[in-house]
Design a protein around this nucleic acid. Structure first.
Lengths: 226, 226
DNA sequence: CGGCGTCGTCAAGACGGCGTCAAAATCCCA
DNA sequence: TGGGATTTTGACGCCGTCTTGACGACGCCG
């Protein structure tokens, strides 16, 4: 569960945000001013701070500094001031995002998702696609197999596989594959596709003659079935 | 050096951003449409993408999806449309930030700093890397070997090795290596790479003819395997 | 039931990339 | 200015990949 601290001196906004965030099943803390905010984060760690800059007791940028001194918790700033200087000051102080009032609740929620998404996925490796027993890492151009036998793909095989894997479940026409991999003038050389799909299946499928993930749609094209 | 890809179909904006970013000593790539952007990121890894949503060839959200399918590179979206739905769509597709035109350059730069700050703070590893029997200290430019035989690397060898070691396990394309070490116009001089990879292997690998850590991915590039 | 097209499979030759060696050109410091 | 280290350039052989052709199996349709 993601815990969010909302800092704002306007009870109305505080209430609205709390209701909206709770409805999205976030844990919500609230603080009416900067001092309370700093105290709250100290003895109640949270995953994200939504911070209004217009606080009664201290300047918002000071609050950011106070937090950044010892924690990397993401900070989304709310502000009525739309001037460039204010934004630059807040962002350079350590804020992760800056939203100008009046703002749509949907936008704020989307920005919250954007920040927390990167937070949770930060420690993990690059995105991978599992295909049967093999794990394909498109970014690193690497295939890991369960029995640690090395699987190596040639450049042409990677190109072909990448197109299919980036459109999971979708039917890709032969013409499109040929033109993407070999060039616009090769749209009719279907024998290339037969050749390389066979190679990919031999390297990735458990039973190459009975493909379960790299399937043929006769007369139309090929499809990657996750 | 942080490398930024700017995607926009307006030459004016492209030019302005390139000049401004270069002045802040960023490396800048540019792409005029979505297809060029996707291609650029594939064979030219970058640290941040600044993406205009109004592209001539494809919808901006599709570009985001195309990137997020295999990479976590941060994406800052520029857009003329200020509607909440557009923002939500782009952010939920995987964008990290959304800036509405017209925007101040200072604000964009601050947002770039905010995104890259979080990026670089997490990725810093220890400056020493062990490669087989040798211990490489990138910060001090020093190689320690077990039998105390001195290993000296030339400046060019250091540059090449540093790029590979800073991306452990990751495939680095020949184009990228050549452009980083020798300059943008040397992207096709693969004989340099062959020459210097051979030298590095002779100095660092136990069996230079059977490399275990500085491996070749035929037709694609090289990889440092820890 | 028979013809036709598509797909999977195999094999062999062409081609290009890679490692290697060698030597010329250049740089750098004494 | 000289000499050693470093970089640049050229050439060659090997090996893996790509290309190309051919053949049989299968399903579809008349």
């Amino acid at each position: 569960m993601t815990r969010i601290l909302v800092v704002d001196d306007d009870p109305q906004i505080l209430r609205a945000l709390r209701i909206n965030l709770r409805a999205r099943s976030y844990d919500v803390d609230v603080a009416p001013d900067g001092a309370a905010a700093l105290r709250s984060v100290v003895d109640h760690p949270c995953d994200l701070v939504v911070l209004d800059l217009g606080l009664p007791d201290m300047d918002g940028v000071e609050v950011i500094h106070g937090l950044r001194g010892w924690t990397d918790v993401p900070i989304i700033v709310l502000s009525g001031r739309a001037s460039g200087e204010d934004k630059v000051a807040a962002l350079d102080a350590g804020a992760d995002d800056y939203v100008t009032k009046p703002f749509g609740v949907d936008e704020l929620l989307a920005r919250i998702r954007a920040v927390t998404r990167r937070l949770s996925s930060g420690a993990e490796g690059s995105p991978v696609v599992t295909i049967g027993e093999h794990v394909v890492d498109l970014a690193n151009r690497e295939v890991r197999s369960p029995d640690s036998t090395e699987v190596r793909l040639t450049p042409t095989e990677w190109q072909l596989l990448e197109i299919l894997l980036r459109n999971p479940g979708k039917l890709i026409s032969q013409r499109y594959l040929l033109q993407q991999v070999w060039g616009p003038s090769y749209w009719s050389e279907t024998n290339y596709l037969r050749q390389y799909m066979a190679q990919l299946r031999h390297k990735l499928e458990a039973e190459p003659s009975r493909p379960r993930h790299l399937v043929t749609e006769p007369g139309m094209g090929y499809r990657f079935r996750p």
